[in-house]
Lab assay of single mutants.
Amino acid sequence: RVIAMPSVRKYAREKGVDIRLVQGTGKNGRVLKEDIDAWLA
């Protein structure tokens, strides 16, 4: 299970990103909004 705040999950869904593919850089591997942006870049 991916650790991410609900707002980040929603952001990823809106961008069409599968959050399971994104490498989290936050505490304990948490996926941050910046990680979604970096994955899209």
Rank of each mutant, 00 (worst) to 15 (best):
V17Q: 02
L40T: 11
I36K: 00
K10D: 04
L40S: 06
I36G: 00
K33W: 06
G29S: 09
R9E: 03
G26Y: 02
L32V: 08
A4H: 03
L40M: 11
I36Y: 00
D35H: 02
V8A: 04
G29E: 07
G16I: 04
R9M: 04
M5F: 12
L40D: 05
L21Y: 12
G24S: 10
R9I: 08
R13D: 06
D37E: 09
V31D: 00
E14Y: 07
G29N: 11
V17E: 00
V2Q: 07
L21P: 02
V8R: 01
G29L: 09
K15E: 11
P6F: 05
G16K: 10
V22D: 00
I3Q: 09
R13H: 12
P6G: 10
V31F: 02
K27Q: 14
W39A: 04
R1T: 15
V17L: 07
K10L: 14
L40Y: 08
L32A: 06
K33R: 15
K15Q: 10
K27M: 11
M5W: 11
D18S: 07
R20E: 11
D35W: 00
G29R: 06
W39H: 09
L40K: 06
K27V: 07
D18H: 05
R1F: 05
T25E: 04
S7P: 07
Q23L: 15
R9N: 05
A38I: 15
R1A: 12
K27H: 08
R13E: 05
A38R: 13
T25K: 09
Y11A: 02
V2Y: 03
W39Y: 14
R9L: 05
K33Y: 06
S7Y: 12
G16L: 08
D35T: 01
E34H: 12
R1Q: 13
T25H: 11
V17T: 02
V31N: 01
M5I: 11
K27F: 08
T25G: 05
R13S: 07
Y11E: 02
E14S: 08
V2P: 15
K10V: 12
R30W: 13
K15S: 09
G24I: 02
N28K: 14
S7M: 09
M5R: 12
V2R: 04
T25C: 04
E34F: 14
R30V: 05
A38M: 12
A4V: 05
P6Y: 07
G26M: 02
A38Y: 12
L32Q: 07
P6K: 12
V17G: 01
V17M: 04
K15T: 15
A41L: 08
V17W: 00
Y11H: 06
A41S: 15
L32K: 13
Y11P: 01
R1V: 15
V17A: 06
Q23E: 11
G26K: 05
D35I: 00
R20N: 07
V31A: 03
Y11C: 03
Y11L: 03
M5A: 14
V22S: 01
L40V: 11
L40F: 08
Q23A: 10
K15L: 10
K27C: 09
L21D: 09
N28L: 13
V8I: 07
Q23S: 11
W39V: 12
S7I: 10
Y11F: 05
S7F: 05
M5T: 13
V8P: 02
K27W: 08
A4L: 05
E34V: 13
E14L: 14
I36F: 00
V17H: 00
V2S: 04
M5Q: 12
R9Q: 04
V31K: 04
R1P: 15
L21V: 13
L40G: 09
Y11M: 05
K10W: 08
N28R: 14
L21H: 12
A12P: 01
R30F: 13
A41V: 15
S7L: 11
A4G: 04
V2K: 06
R13M: 15
E34D: 15
E34Q: 14
T25V: 04
W39I: 08
G26S: 09
S7Q: 10
V8T: 06
I3T: 13
G16V: 05
G24K: 04
G24E: 02
A12Y: 01
P6A: 15
Q23Y: 12
M5V: 15
D18I: 06
K27S: 09
V22W: 02
I19P: 02
A38F: 14
R30S: 11
D37T: 07
G24Q: 03
A38H: 15
I3M: 06
D35E: 01
V2N: 07
V17K: 01
R1I: 15
A38T: 15
V17D: 00
K10S: 07
K27P: 11
P6H: 11
V22Q: 01
V2D: 10
G24L: 02
E34I: 13
E34S: 10
S7A: 15
L40A: 06
R9S: 03
D18T: 06
R20L: 14
P6Q: 15
R9W: 09
L21E: 13
I19D: 02
R13P: 00
A12F: 01
I36L: 06
T25W: 04
G26L: 02
A41I: 13
K33L: 10
A12H: 00
I3Y: 04
R13W: 14
R30K: 10
G29V: 02
P6L: 11
D37S: 06
D37F: 04
